[in-house]
């Protein structure tokens, strides 16, 4: 579905992502892990078409991004790490505003289902800036995916939130995966990764170093740690992987 061919990104002579070639299959749920500054967010933004690669090409269903960007974005939802909402608005106003922004009118039944699963009806009339982090993440998720995209990209969707909110979000993401949608998300949380991922994509030093299933990663874990002894953060991440 999405093909990366020697895709790299350089900012002012600093390479933040070394050439990557990869195929992301439809319906796969891929958890991206790695230390800070390893190139995970840049990779996700490139896939999301929010960044242009310095070199290489990305294509969606065989058509290069540059020729297909409208169709690509129609099929894609992206949840940034930040809360990309107008926080002065209430949840209701927020949803209503983004619905009007959207070219494709969201399916009301999908929206209703999403609101119920994420229990957003409880805070429907409250201002977003007065909600806890967990609720804000949920509203952020709802707005990002209101068009029921087939490719869901998420940059740390459950970072810094309470367990109840995390459970709601994971339940929702699991249901999306069960519907056959493609999930590509960054996380530092093994519980979340184990719940959702078919595969893990491990980043270090500006490149993906391993793409593996849970079993494969468990098998290769020690050798990776030996391969990158100076990467303390990577060591810590893998240490807790069971």
């Amino acid at each position: 579905m999405i093909q990366l061919d020697k895709v790299s990104k350089t900012y002012k002579s600093k390479t933040v992502l070394h050439p990557v070639s990869m195929h992301i299959e439809e319906g796969k749920s891929i958890g991206i892990i790695g230390p800070n500054g390893a190139g995970k967010s840049t990779f996700l933004k490139l896939v999301a078409s929010l960044e242009k690669p310095t070199d290489g090409t990305l294509s969606f269903n065989g058509v290069p991004y540059r020729k297909n960007v409208k169709n690509l974005r129609k099929n894609m939802g992206y949840i940034p790490q930040d809360i990309a909402l107008y926080e002065e608005l209430t949840v209701k106003e927020q949803i209503s505003f983004w619905k009007r922004v959207s070219l494709e009118k969201p399916d009301p039944s999908f929206l209703k289902q999403m609101i119920q699963t994420l229990r957003l009806d409880e805070v429907y009339k409250q201002r977003v800036d007065r909600l806890s982090g967990g609720w804000r993440r949920k509203v952020n998720l709802l707005v990002g995916f209101m068009n029921n995209p087939s490719i869901c990209l998420l940059d740390e969707p459950t970072a810094g939130i309470d367990l109840a909110a995390k459970e709601d979000i994971l339940t929702w993401l699991q249901s999306l995966h069960d519907q056959g949608k493609t999930l590509l998300y960054i996380s530092h949380d093994w519980y979340e990764l184990n719940q959702l991922s078919d595969e893990y994509l491990l980043f270090a030093k500006g490149r993906p170093i391993v793409r593996a299933t849970r079993e494969e990663l468990l098998r290769e874990k020690d050798s990776i740690m030996e391969q990158y002894p100076e990467e303390k953060e990577l060591q810590n991440i893998l240490k807790f992987f069971k």
Binding site: Y78, P80, D82, S102
Partner: peptide
């Protein structure tokens, strides 16, 4: 732009 709202508009409107 910094908070990702512009990117969100881009996804919803192209």
């Amino acid at each position: 732009e910094k908070a990702g709202r512009t990117a969100r508009v881009l996804f919803l409107r192209s």
